[in-house]
Design a protein around this nucleic acid. Structure first.
Ligand SMILES: NC(=O)c1ccc[n+]([C@@H]2O[C@H](COP(=O)([O-])OP(=O)(O)OC[C@H]3O[C@@H](n4cnc5c(N)ncnc54)[C@H](O)[C@@H]3O)[C@@H](O)[C@H]2O)c1
Ligand SMILES: NC(=O)c1ccc[n+]([C@@H]2O[C@H](COP(=O)([O-])OP(=O)(O)OC[C@H]3O[C@@H](n4cnc5c(N)ncnc54)[C@H](O)[C@@H]3O)[C@@H](O)[C@H]2O)c1
Lengths: 250, 250
DNA sequence: TCGACTTTGTGCGTGCGTTCACAAGCGGTA
DNA sequence: TACCGCTTGTGAACGCACGCACAAAGTCGA
């Protein structure tokens, strides 16, 4: 995958003033979808597709076509009426708005089960997020390379993060250590944090945190199971389990 | 109204009709937060805290106090004015609404880097989500126990899912296999899917999909880095804001 | 060159979610 | 018992986001 970057563009493309104001006004929800469009578009580009309509793209991305067009309009007018969008043009503009014209160095803290998976994962470097530093407290891990990067001791976090210009920190430690690790990342100058520990992190205003909480995801799914079961129960008899004849048809 | 403390409640607590209507009306966003409150409350309960005010709880959960109270009001009125909430009471009611009074059996498909981490993770069983089935296509993996569960071949997915009453399927395969795996899960009767593959899954209406997309998370972070950098640039850069029209929100 | 057709970009109504602000309700106290 | 201070629960206003529907704008063929 990975439509290669660093091709024709200058390494640090600053946004035009007009784009700057645009970027400020893009709704958070739209930003998340732009990232999805970008991936779909990259896939299309890899398959040699050069043009795409909002209808096609919206279906591939699983959203409403009007919403897609509105999302794209936040970043400018790069479509051609009557025709659609040029895939490469769209890719490059979304990348520019998302700040992907520059690489973002990633540090992973906590090289356990999850940390290993993240460090070994090949999907990030190809998308402009090279993992350049790994940290842990376990003496047995220090110095061992994981995914090609040797693990550093957490105490070296400030020096290493500064040296390697880490801009995104990933927390994959046990919950009790998460806040302390977060604090250390922040004082090392990291302003973006992706948190896997099921803990609500307290950070200063200038730091952006996103959390990935699998237990929460499952509980949301559970809620929908329950709601569905109740719906079924209130329609038919009081038994939603066991013998239903699997009536799922697309 | 079922307001009495129903301790000693049986494993399958059906929702009262009144609650059923409530549950249907809970905004999706609130459900996600309820799951967070639940975890914070569980932590408090473990530390012996028995009562909590909306102010305390909201700070621990990192949300606005008014929002927290509104969220809690969706599930009923279980607080005491002038005092606050009883931690255990709140825990049990949130669990009931989220459908956590019953266990949800989980199947993981794709036992690679990520699948191993998930299968080994101890955080799910403790929260009512026992992992009871693992699937892969790799012959070397079939039969090998991971986290105590032997890996089955993907071709056995229907039989095994039915037998073990799997209600949540987790997809951790490479992207090209994801849609096909999803289809097989669906035809095995699984109606809830958690997808780690960076692919937009197509599913029938009666199936609920949630996706965890790390690349998207990082790109959102990247967007904020870029926006912040531009902001800094426009402050030091005098001519940046000559553009007309566009109104910027504070 | 012109007209017909296609698809974008967006103004606008609608509905959901967030926030404010305060009355209602409860426990403690005199 | 009556009062006081505290916290909940919620009505109401607001703001954002979604999606419809259509004019604008371009392409293509004749
Ligand atoms: N494994 C999963 O599938 C999964 C799923 C959901 C959530 N999580 C969460 O992700 C986090 C990591 O999970 P895991 O399964 O990889 O745990 P793990 O126990 O396998 O690994 C944790 C690692 O963090 C290291 N560590 C501990 N304290 C540290 C500190 N102060 N500084 C740096 N490193 C430290 C440990 O040495 C260990 O290597 C946990 O918070 C867990 O709740 C994991
Ligand atoms: N590892 C990470 O940290 C990470 C991060 C983000 C996203 N992801 C995504 O998660 C998914 C899994 O990542 P990974 O690193 O574990 O990959 P992996 O290659 O280590 O493991 C994939 C596993 O899936 C199995 N598999 C392949 N086709 C299958 C099929 N049709 N049915 C069942 N099993 C099949 C393979 O045998 C392999 O064991 C990928 O889609 C990846 O993009 C992973």
């Amino acid at each position: 995958m990975a439509s290669q970057r660093g091709e024709g563009e200058t390494t640090a493309t600053p946004l035009e003033p007009a784009d700057r104001e645009r970027a400020r006004a893009i709704p958070e929800a739209a930003v998340a979808r732009l990232a999805v469009y970008l991936r779909v578009l990259s896939g299309m580009a890899d398959q040699g597709v050069t043009a795409v309509s909002s209808e096609e793209l919206s279906q591939a991305a699983g959203v409403n076509a009007a919403k897609l067009r509105k999302d794209l309009s936040y970043i400018g007018s790069y479509g051609t009426r009557g025709v659609g969008y040029d895939v490469e043009v769209l890719v490059s503009h979304i990348e520019r708005i998302l700040g992907l014209t520059r690489n973002h160095s990633v540090a992973v803290v906590g090289i356990g089960n999850l940390g290993h998976a993240l460090a070994n994962y090949g999907g990030f470097p190809g998308r402009g997020f090279p993992v350049t530093a790994l940290f842990d407290v376990d003496p047995d891990l220090i110095g061992i390379p994981v995914g090609g990067i040797p693990v550093n001791h957490i105490d070296e976090i400030t020096a290493v993060c500064l040296e390697r210009e880490v801009s995104i920190g990933v927390i994959a430690t046990p919950p009790p250590a998460a806040q302390s690790v977060c604090d250390r990342l922040v004082s090392a100058g990291v302003q973006c944090i992706l948190n896997f520990a099921p803990v609500v992190l307290q950070v200063p205003d200038n730091v952006e945190v996103r959390k990935v909480d699998l237990a929460v995801e499952m509980q949301i799914l559970s809620f929908h199971v329950a709601r569905r079961a109740d719906e079924a129960a209130s329609v038919s008899d009081g038994n939603g389990l066991g013998v239903d004849g699997m009536v799922i048809r697309p």
